[in-house]
């Protein structure tokens, strides 16, 4: 089954790179210009009618975003992964939301998490997971979550005892908050 898919994709896209092949599982990488063609071909003539996931990987060192579309054929349980690489600055990827209604939610999430724009998605830019986010998109590699967390929520207090009971008990008392002070007085 997967052999036939592979052969047909290879004929149509000679620049295709094979990433991984397993039992009923194929992962190919295509040029970014032909990614949409490959997906449409998989949908219309190869039987991969369902979109399972749209994912993206930040390859910061190469200044690229790798997009991966995971398609599935429900009739014979084969999975096809199609990847393509896009430049990292002002990354624009075509939207699939008019082909698969489920794509819209995946694209909204990726827009929020990576800042990759999907023109053609009618609901792009609506808040999905975050609310009032002002920093750079959080899933990018250059966003440092630990520093951000430290700045916003305060540092984590170091552990002074190894006995958890004492450790947690003490820390609740030592917190530099009004309630914490009160608890300390109560002790």
């Amino acid at each position: 089954m997967i052999d036939k898919t592979k052969k047909e994709l290879e004929i149509r896209f000679p620049l295709l790179k094979l990433v991984r092949e397993m039992h009923n599982y194929l992962h190919v990488e295509v040029e970014k210009a032909s990614a949409m063609d490959a997906i449409l071909m998989a949908k219309t003539s190869l039987g991969f009618k369902t979109l399972q996931l749209i994912s993206s990987v930040d390859r910061m060192e190469e200044n690229l975003f790798q997009m991966t579309w995971i398609l599935e054929n429900y009739n014979n349980e084969t999975t096809l992964l199609i990847s393509a690489r896009y430049p990292r600055e002002n990354c624009i990827v075509p939207s699939l939301s008019d082909i698969w209604p489920a794509a819209s939610a995946f694209e909204r999430e990726i827009f929020e998490m990576f800042g990759i724009s999907f023109p053609g998605n009618p609901r792009e830019g609506e808040d999905f997971l975050l609310e009032g986010w002002k920093d750079i998109p959080p899933m990018r590699r250059d966003f440092l979550t630990e520093e951000y967390s430290m700045k916003l929520y305060g540092e984590r207090q170091p552990r002074e005892h190894l006995d958890p009971r004492q450790y947690i008990g003490d820390m609740v008392g030592e917190w530099n908050t009004p309630m914490g002070q009160k608890r300390k007085e109560e002790k």
Partner: peptide, 19 residues
């Protein structure tokens, strides 16, 4: 809620609820 638990370095969860 006490000190952030396993998400102490997450950008989206609070660390010390007491504040």
């Amino acid at each position: 809620t006490i000190n952030g638990g396993m998400y102490f370095d997450s950008y989206n969860t609070l660390n010390v609820l007491d504040k």
